[in-house]
Simulated assay, not measured.
Amino acid sequence: MRFSKEIFFLLLLSIMVACGDSDEGGPVDNGPDDSVSIPTSGYTSPTSYANRTLVWSDEFESSSLNLSDWTYEIGTGSNGWGNNELQYYTNSNTSMQDGHLVITAKEQSLNGSNYTSSRIVTMNKQDFRYGRIDIRAALPEGQGIWPALWMLGSNFNTVGWPASGEIDIMEMIGGSGRESTVHGTVHWENDGQRAQFGGETTLSSGTFHDQFHVFSIEWDASQIRWLVNDQQYHVIDTTPAQLSEFRNSFFFIFNLAVGGNWPGSPNSSTTFPQYLIVDYVRVFQ
């Protein structure tokens, strides 16, 4: 999930507005339409690792999002959050069901947008430098659907993007048979320009919508490794000086975008609502 550098100051304004827990003018919609069938199968990661300690987690067992850890980002950002995304982010599209975080994308008109969804961040509340991160999630599907579980450098407010660095733990772009592939990527600044390095992995059968999978990174001072269900598929050496961003602290962003430069727009084959379902996020160090 990439930013464009020129939206930095407008994005800061959006974040300041989002620090509350309401979105004036947004729909309050927590009725039967938000009920979703939670998958009952899939991979589950260990609750402990040798020589590591669980330093933070959210198991999403509460009745509402824990605002001590998370903040809603509201609106459209600038230029669709720098990606020409089509949704308007509200806090009403986030719910808790049976111990799971559910972010819902809807075909719904609001403040000039034809779609609504949610985007939550831990900025200024929970950030981390190094460790193993496990996120168990079931993904949505459909043309124009773009779920992302990712991180930005905690100095984002000061230096902007991409100088802050970005770690995309998981991105998936729906449609055209792409729901069986996920991507792991980093973005950083190199000689004043955005640089990126990414990898991907594809399931041998089925899609990431069918059941839960665990999306992980193993991150230390010298490298970042990406794993799905504890199987590594991508790695980057972060020891070069121009990748020093990745030796700083980062915060989480979970969002479900609709449309954008990468997936393209929804079409007649896309069904709504769509759901990004997260069982837990855990950080071990």
Results as ranks from 00 to 15, higher is better:
162 P>I: 05
162 P>C: 06
163 A>T: 05
163 A>E: 13
163 A>M: 04
164 S>I: 00
165 G>L: 07
167 I>P: 07
167 I>L: 07
167 I>C: 03
167 I>W: 08
168 D>S: 01
168 D>L: 00
168 D>N: 01
169 I>L: 04
169 I>W: 09
170 M>G: 03
170 M>H: 03
171 E>C: 06
172 M>V: 12
172 M>T: 06
173 I>G: 14
173 I>V: 15
173 I>A: 12
174 G>R: 05
174 G>Y: 08
175 G>F: 08
175 G>K: 07
175 G>R: 05
175 G>T: 12
176 S>I: 07
177 G>T: 11
177 G>K: 05
177 G>H: 12
178 R>E: 15
178 R>G: 15
178 R>K: 14
180 S>W: 07
181 T>G: 15
181 T>Y: 01
182 V>P: 02
183 H>P: 15
183 H>N: 15
184 G>K: 14
185 T>P: 09
185 T>L: 02
186 V>E: 09
187 H>I: 08
188 W>L: 05
188 W>G: 08
188 W>N: 10
188 W>Q: 09
189 E>K: 06
190 N>K: 12
190 N>F: 07
190 N>I: 11
190 N>E: 09
192 G>H: 07
192 G>K: 11
192 G>E: 12
192 G>R: 05
192 G>I: 10
193 Q>H: 11
193 Q>K: 12
194 R>N: 13
196 Q>T: 13
196 Q>H: 13
196 Q>N: 11
196 Q>K: 12
196 Q>D: 12
197 F>R: 10
198 G>W: 08
198 G>K: 12
199 G>M: 01
200 E>G: 13
201 T>F: 03
201 T>P: 09
203 L>E: 07
204 S>F: 14
204 S>K: 13
204 S>C: 14
205 S>M: 04
205 S>G: 10
206 G>F: 02
207 T>W: 00
207 T>A: 04
208 F>N: 02
208 F>H: 00
209 H>M: 03
209 H>N: 06
210 D>F: 03
210 D>N: 05
211 Q>E: 05
212 F>M: 02
212 F>N: 02
212 F>W: 04
212 F>A: 01
213 H>V: 02
213 H>L: 02
213 H>G: 04
213 H>D: 01
213 H>I: 04
215 F>D: 14
215 F>R: 09
215 F>K: 10
216 S>V: 04
217 I>R: 00
217 I>W: 00
218 E>G: 02
218 E>K: 11
218 E>I: 12
219 W>V: 02
219 W>K: 00
219 W>Y: 07
220 D>C: 03
220 D>G: 15
220 D>T: 02
220 D>Y: 09
220 D>R: 06
221 A>H: 01
221 A>Y: 03
222 S>K: 02
222 S>G: 15
224 I>S: 11
225 R>P: 06
227 L>W: 01
227 L>E: 07
228 V>Q: 00
228 V>A: 08
229 N>F: 09
229 N>A: 06
230 D>W: 00
231 Q>R: 12
232 Q>E: 15
232 Q>F: 00
232 Q>M: 05
233 Y>E: 02
234 H>R: 12
234 H>Y: 14
234 H>Q: 13
236 I>S: 09
236 I>P: 05
236 I>C: 04
236 I>A: 07
237 D>S: 04
237 D>P: 09
